[in-house]
Every structure is written in structure tokens, then in C-alpha cells.
Design a protein around this nucleic acid. Structure first.
Lengths: 250, 250
DNA sequence: ATGCATTTGTTCGTATGTATC
DNA sequence: AGATACATACGAACAAATGCA
């Protein structure tokens, strides 16, 4: 008794098979960024399916950011280098449909930016310090130009710190969450009356953080970074969410 | 001079238009999870495009985890509740194609789990504490059963902490990165000779962390959680990456 | 710079297996 | 059990776009 144990079979669509094969070829490095896939008509030969099926598979891979195809291109679909675009997309929908609050987003930024500073203070090279210096200098110059330029310099600073942390996940997540937050409150900041005072204050904060990073004092840099972000965003966060944010301050 | 300023036009595919419309309907709440889309034949009428175009759009939405369709279902495609599946997918490909090192992944877990404990110590309810207690108890019971059961209880503990942090992003990212790490080293742990000693040690560590959380000592809970994770995984991380991990210890 | 061949984008028609009533 | 409507998959065709000689 107890014959062979069978496994439940899920009917797997034809296009999924194609997706899997091409995806694996990309992830294993057999298909490198910049390389081209055969044309759709040739693929339908290789997989022995119809053209529609091939196209559905290509659409999925395109949606995942692995491929790009243009009409009329005789070279076939292009294999793309990885970009956090799909990560960005899925986090954005998470933020929308799950009604992620601004408080949660800012809190996450405090965690990421704090950690990035903690690590950057330990691991930074002179070149990376120079990038941060340049970013702060650009912020000073941008006060007279406009908020958009200032914001770009601000982003450059945080990017430099994230890179110096040597952790790609921190880098990418930081980037994604930041752009979501900025999108949410862009209009509110633009309306502010005393943008110039805000910018000057922000510069002073960044200088403080940078000094701690330069001195190699990780914990202090992290603490300052979190505090700075709290001060900068707390005004836009509803009262009842602020207590949770303060949980990350000391 | 200075005629009207035109904007560059990008040819937008028909199926993209459909994706945008349906996506927006879902994100704006006009289409709620559990609801059904019209059948493909009806959609081709509403959008006045061909069947294939509709199908390509549906495939993309399916790949993004917003829809599910089954053959023969008279109700049409189903709108799914958001799941971090696509987030998981894109992080996994990031890990693969960008050759994310185990060190980076563990480091990120140290950041997330540390922060989760820091917040949980402040915000936990009695019910959440009970969940954590139950998880540790399950770990004790699982030592005699096997590593798989033990690992499941371990995951349950970290999940409970993440939930108690009240931050969905920490929760989701924690979940995603953890499963990637576990996949990477599952075989190595299974091969270990002294799994039982490892499990007992792990339980002791969890008890310590839980005590700090119960006492409401956030910084201590965070420090212990990071230390615990470092100790647990450092053996699998190559020498040259360990220094960066130590940057998160005090 | 101009055609030309090829490729993708899109449409239409058809056949087949499947889920629900 | 049968009828109906559905998704899956195939194939042929035309238009628009691209790269190359």
C-alpha cells in the first residue's frame, strides 16, 4: 500500500515557460545587457509557439524591466541592465493601494538614511567626502536659484552618503522611498512662504551631519541625520503619527 | 521668434493605454480587490482594440500582481489585493543580476530587524508580546522536531516584531530580504553538524531580545537584535565583508 | 538622402479545452 | 449531463516604424 505520491499539477501557460527560460538566461548571465534577442518570428520557431504567445511573454519581461523592444528594430528586443524601476513601481503601488502613510515613509527614510550615515562615517573614501562637500556647496549656491535646483543638490548629498555606505540595498531603497516622499509633499513645500529660511536651515543641518561623517563618528552622524529628517518633515506629518517617528530619536 | 514650445511625443502603445486605465482604476479604488473585470471580448469592445491587445495588457497587469485570470472563468479576471510578490520578485532579480553579496543582504537585515525591535519595544501591545512569547515557545518545542519547523517559528518571531513596529515598509522589506537570505544559505545550514547547538543558542538570543522589548528598552533590543543576527550569519559571510557588518555593532 | 527589406504593433478569424450554471 | 461563455492558443494579414545598403 501507499503507492507513489503524486504532486498536484498546476497548468502552466505557454507564455510563462518562455518567460522563465529567457529570465533564467538573463539572470545566469548567458544573456548580457545590451545583447539582442532573436526576432519574434524566429522566437516562435525556437519555442514552437505562435507569435501571440511569444509577444505575451515579451510583454511580461518588458514589464519586469528586463527587455525593451521597439517597432521596426531589426535587431530584436534589447536586454536591459537592471534598474530599480520595477522596485520603484511596486513600492509606489504598495504606498497607494495599501495607503502607506507619510509617517511610515518618513520613518523608513529615517532608518535608511541613519544607517547610511552610520556606515558612511566608517567606510568613506576621500573622493566620496569630496562629493558630499560638492553637494553641500551646490545647495548653498542654489538658494538664490530656486527650490528645484536646491532639492536636486539635496538629493545628490543623500545619494553620495548612500553610495558611501557600500550597501546597494540601502542605496536603492533610499532612492525609491525618497522620490515617493518628495512626490507626496512637493506641492506643500512649493507653497511655503519662507522657503529661503527652510533652505538655509537645511544647509546648516547637512553641514553638521557631514562633519560627523568626516570625523568618522558614525553614531553621531546617524543620530543627527535622523533628527534632521524628523525636523524637516515633521510639519507635514499628522499629529497622531509623530510619536512613532520620535521613537527613532534619542 | 520664440514660437509655441512643443513637447516631444513618445508613441504610446495601445496596450499601455489599457494598462494605465485599469491600473488607475485599481489604485483609485474604483476597482476593489475581489471585483471582476469584464470578459476579454467585452473589454475589446470598450477599448475598441483587438483581442490580442487586450490580452497583452492583461498579461502586464497580471505580471504586476494586480490581476489573475483563469481559463473558462465566466466572471472574468479578478482584481487581487496587493501582495508584496512583485516587490519580492524585483528585489530577487536585483540580488541576482546585480550580484548582491550575502554580506549586503545580512547587513540590510541587521538594519531592518534592529529598527523593528527599536520601535516594537516602544509600541508593542500585550497581544503582540504574547505572539512573540508563543513564537519563542514554538522554537523550543521545535528543537526536537527538526530544523524546518524551528526555522518557521524563528520567522514567526521576527514577523511578530516587525508587525509590532507598526511600519508596513519595514515589515515587507524584512520579509522579502529574509526569504532571499534563507534561500541563499538554506543548504549550508542543513549540512551543519551541530544544528541542535545552533538552535539552542538561537533561542537564548531570542529570549534576550524579547526581554529587552518587554522592558521597553528599545536601544538595547535593537543592539541585541543586530548582534544576534551578526553572530548567527557571520560564519557564512566571506572574511572581507565582515568588517562592514561590524559597522552596525557598538 | 532614398528606397527597400525586415520587424514590431495591431487586427481578425478560428479552433480547443475548461469552468460555471 | 449539457449548454454556454470563457480563456488559451494558433495563423494569416496589414500598417507603421526602423535600420541598412
Amino acid at each position: 500500500m501507499g503507492g507513489p505520491r503524486f504532486e498536484p499539477v498546476r497548468t502552466v501557460r505557454a507564455y510563462e515557460r518562455i518567460v522563465e527560460q529567457i529570465e533564467q538566461a538573463v539572470e545566469s548571465g548567458k544573456l548580457r545587457p545590451g545583447e539582442r534577442l532573436p526576432s519574434e518570428r524566429e522566437l516562435m520557431g525556437q519555442f514552437s509557439v505562435s507569435r501571440s504567445t511569444v509577444r505575451e511573454a515579451l510583454r511580461v519581461l518588458q514589464a519586469r524591466g528586463l527587455l525593451r523592444s521597439r517597432p521596426g528594430d531589426p535587431n530584436g528586443a534589447e536586454v536591459l541592465p537592471f534598474s530599480p524601476a520595477t522596485l520603484h513601481k511596486s513600492m509606489t503601488t504598495l504606498a497607494r493601494v495599501d495607503e502607506l502613510s507619510l509617517g511610515e515613509l518618513v520613518q523608513f527614510r529615517m532608518v535608511l538614511d541613519g544607517s547610511a550615515n552610520l556606515l558612511a562615517a566608517r567606510l568613506h573614501t576621500p573622493e566620496e567626502l569630496a562629493e558630499m562637500d560638492a553637494a553641500v556647496e551646490a545647495m548653498r549656491a542654489a538658494v538664490q536659484v530656486g527650490y528645484d535646483t536646491f532639492s536636486a543638490a539635496d538629493v545628490a548629498f543623500h545619494d553620495a552618503v548612500a553610495r558611501a555606505s557600500r550597501n546597494k540595498l540601502i542605496q536603492v531603497c533610499n532612492d525609491v522611498v525618497r522620490s515617493i516622499v518628495l512626490n507626496l509633499i512637493a506641492d506643500k513645500i512649493a507653497d511655503s512662504d519662507d522657503r529661503e529660511a527652510l533652505m538655509l536651515e537645511s544647509i546648516r543641518h547637512h553641514e553638521e551631519v557631514l562633519e560627523a561623517v568626516r570625523a568618522g563618528d558614525g553614531p553621531r552622524a546617524a543620530r543627527l541625520a535622523r533628527r534632521k529628517m524628523y525636523d524637516y518633515y515633521v510639519g507635514y506629518v499628522p499629529e497622531e503619527e509623530r510619536e512613532a517617528l520620535r521613537g527613532l530619536l534619542e
